[in-house]
């Protein structure tokens, strides 16, 4: 009897890890996409997710604005806002940093982190905000041994898998996808073929923040509400996930994120009681250190081709 319970508990940890990992994956894939196409390490990716996670609350309650929008529409607007913000950032900021040293671009993304914290403080403060009931899935997916997968996690898994598959097909089979990769591998050589670097960067940012907005909203849904702190944690975990996957690899970011999610959840479930509370959250970081030592290019990163 107790064996069954143990297996069920283990399965539950694992499934929750998969779900969380998929949420991370949506944000991590956004991160990897920007790095792959533009070479920018956007440290603000998790903070963007926080902003997007908050948006449905802001839009659908009269918290800040004086009108209320149907919660579902609010979610749709949020995803659209992801697309829009991607465009705005490119036109407003990153366009001017093409060809600038990596360090100055990193400083810009850190400035974005600080700005977002400021905006959030101004809008709602750090406290917890319940999500509008109407957008919270009231269903779960029953699995074996009485274990259930939460609705938001189920959605995250579906979205993450679909996004990764779509992006891989896009990069492999479409002309635009080839051009984005070409521009990433050699900007000048792409430019003399008429490729507009600005345009490739716009496309990357728009797709990236659209995906990230979905991740940000689903994460809030999984906790039935929004609060700021967990997102900053995600911002760091996502970085670990991406490094694990090889930074510029889309499927790598996905698998890295899933791995991090599962490690975190199993660590929290089994080790927190033994070691110390919060150890589960640190575990992925320890894991990351090992990975960086053993696999400098991550699992799927591009190794520079060395010809003899």
């Amino acid at each position: 009897m107790s064996d069954v319970v143990d297996v069920a508990t283990g399965l539950e940890f694992f499934i929750t890890g998969l779900g969380k990992g998929s949420v991370y994956a949506l944000i991590a894939v956004g991160f990897a996409l920007i790095y792959k196409v533009t070479g920018v390490l956007n440290f603000a990716q998790g903070w963007f997710a926080a902003l997007f996670g908050l948006l449905p609350v802001v839009l659908s309650t009269s918290l800040v604005v004086s009108f209320e929008i149907s919660p579902l529409v609010a979610v749709a607007i949020t995803v659209f806002a992801g697309l829009l913000l991607g465009l705005v950032l490119e036109f407003g900021i990153f366009r001017f940093f093409i060809g600038e040293p990596v360090l100055s671009v990193i400083v810009v993304t850190l400035a974005l982190v600080a700005s977002i914290e400021g905006i959030v403080q101004y809008l709602v403060g750090p406290g917890y905000r319940a999500y509008p009931e109407a957008v919270l899935p009231d269903w779960t997916v029953p699995l074996a041994l009485g274990v259930e997968l939460q609705g938001p996690f189920a959605l995250a898994i579906v979205f993450a898998v679909a996004t990764v598959a779509a992006l891989m097909a896009f990069f492999r089979y479409t002309v635009m996808g080839s051009i984005l990769r070409a521009a990433a591998s050699d900007q000048q050589a792409a430019m003399v073929l008429g490729v507009s670097i600005e345009r490739t960067i716009v496309v990357a940012w728009a797709i990236s923040l659209t995906i990230t907005s979905i991740g940000g909203v689903l994460f809030a849904m999984s906790t039935s509400g929004w609060s700021f702190a967990p997102y900053t944690n995600i911002g760091i975990l996502v970085f670990a996930a991406v490094v694990l996957g090889g930074i510029d690899s889309i499927p790598g970011a996905f698998i890295g994120a899933i791995t991090i999610g599962v490690i975190e959840e199993l660590g929290t479930g089994y080790l927190d009681p033994v070691v110390a509370p919060g150890f589960g959250t640190v575990l992925p970081m320890l894991f990351l250190l090992v990975i960086i030592l053993v696999l400098p290019y991550g699992l799927f990163g591009t190794e520079r081709i060395e010809r003899l």
Partner: peptide, 24 residues
């Protein structure tokens, strides 16, 4: 450009494909 600037991690076909566009 000088130095045979192929897009290294693209296949030969994908390299050729990048020549298919001009002026968008």
């Amino acid at each position: 450009l000088e130095g045979r600037r192929v897009f290294e991690d693209l296949t030969v076909e994908e390299n050729l494909r990048c020549g298919l566009y001009r002026g968008g």
